[in-house]
């Protein structure tokens, strides 16, 4: 009793705010968002861009064509062995891609994000569709080489 009176004379003991429940909730939210973020970018996680030692970074908006490997086989005009997306829209044939590109106008720059291990004949139909849609050039997305 004597010690208490010297340190805290007559005062009630200060109760610290218990942050343990807060930490618990925040931790659960973090894990939740990490998992959701991982699932949301899962489609792009398969995409390994080719490496380049030069290039430009740009903030200019535009449209993005993503070409990732898939197991599907080609028939007729369809893309073979790849999944082609314009933004989030999956396109099955070169004619569909051409129509979608034309519908959005051909003035905005187009970025081509293609997997590095794809053979060129899987990427060439995309370029051909761009060319038929009146697009004269694309930006090739690459990964910065170490």
């Amino acid at each position: 009793m004597r010690r208490r009176s010297t340190v805290n004379p007559g005062q009630p003991v200060f109760e610290a705010v218990n942050v343990t429940p807060l930490i618990d909730v925040v931790m659960v939210m973090i894990i939740f968002f990490l998992i959701v973020g991982k699932l949301a970018t899962d489609a792009d996680a398969r995409l390994r861009l080719p490496q380049s030692g030069i290039g430009t970074t740009t903030q200019q908006p535009g449209r993005t064509i993503t070409v990732t490997p898939s197991g599907a086989s080609a028939a007729g005009d369809a893309f073979g062995g790849v999944e082609v997306r314009l933004e989030q829209q999956i396109l099955r044939t070169g004619a569909e891609l051409e129509a979608a590109l034309r519908a959005g106008g051909t003035d905005a720059p187009v970025t081509l994000r293609a997997h590095r291990d794809l053979p060129f004949e899987a990427v060439a139909p995309v370029l051909a569709a761009c060319s038929r849609a009146g697009i004269i050039g694309v930006r090739l997305a690459t990964e910065r080489a170490p």
Binding site: L49, S52, I54, G55, T56, T57, T58, T111, L112, L127, C130, S131, I135, I136, G137, V138, R139, L140, A141, T142, E143, R144
Partner: peptide
């Protein structure tokens, strides 16, 4: 890391 872009023309 950020992406780098290379400009490419499409030959017809």
């Amino acid at each position: 890391g950020p992406e780098w872009f290379l400009k490419a023309l499409i030959a017809r």
